[in-house]
Design a protein around this nucleic acid. Structure first.
Lengths: 247, 247
DNA sequence: CGCTAGCTTGACCTAGATCAAATATGGTGG
DNA sequence: CCACCATATTTGATCTAGGTCAAGCTAGCG
């Protein structure tokens, strides 16, 4: 059942989908009437675990989450960071067993939407289905871009690329502007995402500060030289497939 | 228009889709009646290039292909290997601009299917649409698994993992069995896929041969110790989401 | 005010890169 | 059948980005 505040929260999903696709008024209305149960989660809490068979999707309303998998001996790989508007486990609609885990990185507000409701929605509105499929494809495009980083870029380029990517993603849903945004994750998280040790992330961040590319204090990232940051990281935003191209 | 030989070729697509989903008789029939233009391509030929806006999908009937992107200074990242039954540019249905390239690795037979025909098919048969969406999601799962390799595994583990993965994928469409398969790619290709230099790929392959895990001569890979290969590469086939689980 | 999670620094080490040259190998044309 | 060529593979020597280990430091919070 949707309450007044849930309706506001589903606006976040509309904003996200409209950053990569176009929706009709009817489709927006239908999304707004999705039933969603909202919960506030603590940082570091698992939302879905490797092996689970979820019966609902989760929409991030506030805070950050990540998808990850742990291997032996404390090795961990983060696959993606998720921000408000994202449905990080959208794939569970079509792939019934989780092959990785999903957890909050910060305190987070999330809305749970039953698969059943999602299926009704996508059956009635093929345009919404297309937008969601497209979202999973953009997701895959981001994975590919991270693969380039881990396969062929230096630590410096990888981190710089991540900072560019998150800026555009946040900006697309109205959560960043003026080349600055809240970055509420640890250097260990950055390392686990990019295949680096926390020590090396730390040293590389200092180098980036030293070159005047960024400043990062108390979880606020300021990009001091956007063009240069894009250049050194070989960042080309095409792969995000944003409808309204940002600066 | 489909000729007799095209009908045979679309069987390959059915086989692939049935490895990850179930199809009704009606759906199989509809797939068989897709129009497809078949062509034979030389090795190393681009099928679609970064920046293109394709109006058709390409189905691999014979040979191998790969998706890749080139950066400056000869650096190249291969994102995926594709084998018969795959539609490597399926995403072009929903993402209109290519953000990477697609090329043959060997001489290859491919069938081109107009987007329009794919759209008709998926509109009439939601089950086929679901199977194709699922295919793009499995694709993304494979990207994630490669990310684990590049981020957190040794060269040895990465190559071993690739060998396990390709065996199950080939087996799923009937192109491998008895722990052996044709591997018609160079050591440079393997390096470009896994983020390694050709020299190091070579040395690692020798180590794998030395340990009696594989043999590889004249483009034929024999897995001499499947269990051990799985173990050293931390290979867990769950992420392939195959309907009929292989050995 | 003290605890704890995160950040920073230093010393040292290693997997894998790079560079350069030598061999295979598999066609091709004669 | 052979000589030739281009493409792969293999080997050796050397180098470096980034890992590992261990110890301080700092800041926010109860």
């Amino acid at each position: 059942m949707s309450s007044a505040s849930d309706i506001h929260s589903l606006t976040m999903l509309i904003r996200k989908l409209e950053s990569i696709a176009t929706l009709t008024n009817e489709e927006r209305q239908a999304i707004l009437s999705l039933p969603a149960k909202t919960r506030v989660l603590q940082p570091g809490q698992d939302i879905a675990r490797d092996g689970d068979k979820p019966s609902q999707c989760c929409l991030i309303l506030n805070g950050w989450a990540c998808r990850y998998k742990v291997l032996g001996e404390g090795r961990k790989q983060i696959f993606s960071f998720h921000i408000p508007g994202d449905i990080p486990d959208l794939q569970s609609l079509h792939i019934h067993t989780m092959d990785h885990s999903l957890a909050t990185l910060t305190e987070a507000t999330v809305a749970f939407i039953p698969h059943e409701s999602m299926r009704e929605l996508t059956t009635r509105f093929p345009g919404v289905k297309a937008a969601l499929w497209r979202d999973t494809l953009v997701d895959a495009a981001i994975f590919r871009e991270w693969m380039i980083g881990m396969g062929r870029k230096s630590a410096f380029g990888r981190i710089a690329h991540l900072f560019c990517e998150m800026y555009l993603k946040l900006q697309a849903v109205g959560l960043a502007g003026g080349y600055r945004y809240p970055l509420p994750i640890t250097q260990i998280d950055i390392g686990d995402a990019l295949g680096l040790s926390n020590v090396h992330v730390n040293r590389t961040l200092q180098a980036m500060r030293g070159k005047g590319l960024i400043s990062l204090r108390s979880n606020t990232l300021v990009i001091e030289a956007w063009d240069e940051l894009m250049r050194v990281s070989e960042f080309d935003p095409t792969y995000l497939h944003l409808e309204k191209r940002a600066a």
